[in-house]
Write a protein that binds this DNA or RNA. Structure first.
Lengths: 243, 243
DNA sequence: GAATCCACCC
DNA sequence: GAATCAGCGC
């Protein structure tokens, strides 16, 4: 996300009382993290899970994923597991909201930008649609494309801890020269891999993909409902029969 | 100027009855030329003098200045003199209009684009202000900047005929490679040579220059008026004295 | 926000 | 028209 203030997340993370943040910013918080609404959401749902500044870490170590991964491995992993637990809570809340607002649930991604534009570590938790009025530029889109490489899935980061130490060392460097060019890649639909020549065309296509998914998933939900109705009917019939 | 139809001037130039053109397009015409309003005026006054297609020239020879200057020298010069005569009539009419509408007169430029964007030779006759809502791009501005080089003053073209034949040959080639880069030059005020970093700033500055000129020239006109009033007064006094 | 680039349509 | 560039305020 972009803003005049690149360190606003750090300010949030240092607050002793996160609850003092307005509800338009703060979604939830715990002892270890806080979750805020992304001010420029790039999907229908888009939240950020941010680690609060507490021992054994200082603000510099929590600056970004790169700085975190330079810390003692077990500590870094523990912190990421904490973010993961919180993100999974958030995910459940988003899913409930999806159902309430849209009548179906869809995928949710959790991950980090390889090169973040805002200071202080923040885990993106966003719905798998990339449909949003704030999605305007190629770099916006590619930065969240789940197969482009710039968006690093949380599960991938966690897997690095179990990999060969030399792999961990290499991959945790997150070199700018390696990741920045990814933002210039051709636009392609993250869902069907089709190439789209520009943002307006991509956005229309993503909307079509979402509408298609919506139709399919709502039909699925409807079938489920009917099936459980039928079951209820059958069982009540059986109850009657048993009478 | 720009338009979907690059050959519209040729169509005008081939009309047997130019008077059939609407008055919003046609300003005036003669046996040899017609004068039209530039559809995208780049100054307060901006007209185009266009040679009609008539012997000894065909449409290809009248395609642009370059093609004309490849023709027999005396014929080419004669045609340009014809345009010049017409342009000077137009100039007088513009000046009268300047005075009526603005209360003063200012300079008028006559010249050709080195690389025209429309087919068929057309002589620009425009007021020396470059103040117009249609003036939007750097290339628009530089193409009329009187010292940039892309705008070739009619008087310069006419002077080539009297220069050394090798100079005539070289200069009449109007090489794209030589003239096109001029359109990318830094923006500078044609009047005070100050550099301006972008078009909005340039346009504000040009407007200020025009307003300053307007104040100065209107004051000058006013002093003239007073002076001639005074003279009239004096002479009428003298007349009275003579009574 | 402004300059530049590029692809589409004429 | 859309992608890119660049100056400027925070």
């Amino acid at each position: 996300m972009s803003s005049a203030n690149m360190t606003i997340f750090r300010a949030y993370a240092q607050k002793s009382n996160p609850a003092s943040l307005p509800p338009s910013i703060l979604f939830s918080h715990s002892e270890t993290c806080l979750t805020v609404f992304d001010a420029f959401p790039k999907s229908i749902f888009h939240l950020l899970v941010i680690p609060r500044v507490r021992p054994p870490f200082n603000v510099y170590q929590l600056a970004n994923l790169r700085s975190l991964l330079k810390c003692e491995k077990n500590c870094a992993k523990e912190l990421l597991m904490g973010l993961s637990r919180e993100a999974n809570n958030v995910k459940k809340m988003i899913e409930s909201e999806m159902f309430k607002k849209y009548g179906f649930k869809w995928e949710i991604w959790m991950g980090f930008h390889a090169i973040p534009s805002m200071e202080h570590l923040h885990l993106h938790v966003l719905s798998a649609d990339l449909c949003s009025p704030r999605m305007k530029l190629k770099k916006h889109y590619n930065s969240f494309h789940p197969k482009c490489g710039f968006f690093i899935h949380l599960s991938d980061v966690l897997s690095w801890f179990d990999a060969d130490p030399s792999y961990y060392k290499t991959t945790s460097q997150l070199k700018k020269s390696e990741y920045e060019p990814l933002l210039k890649e051709d636009l392609s639909c993250w869902k069907c891999d089709r190439n789209l020549s520009n943002m307006p065309k991509l956005k229309s296509h993503l909307q079509e993909e979402f509408d298609k998914l919506s139709d399919q998933e709502k039909a699925k939900v409807e079938r489920e409902r009917k099936r459980s109705d039928d079951l209820a009917q059958t069982s009540s019939s059986q109850i009657s029969l048993n009478d």
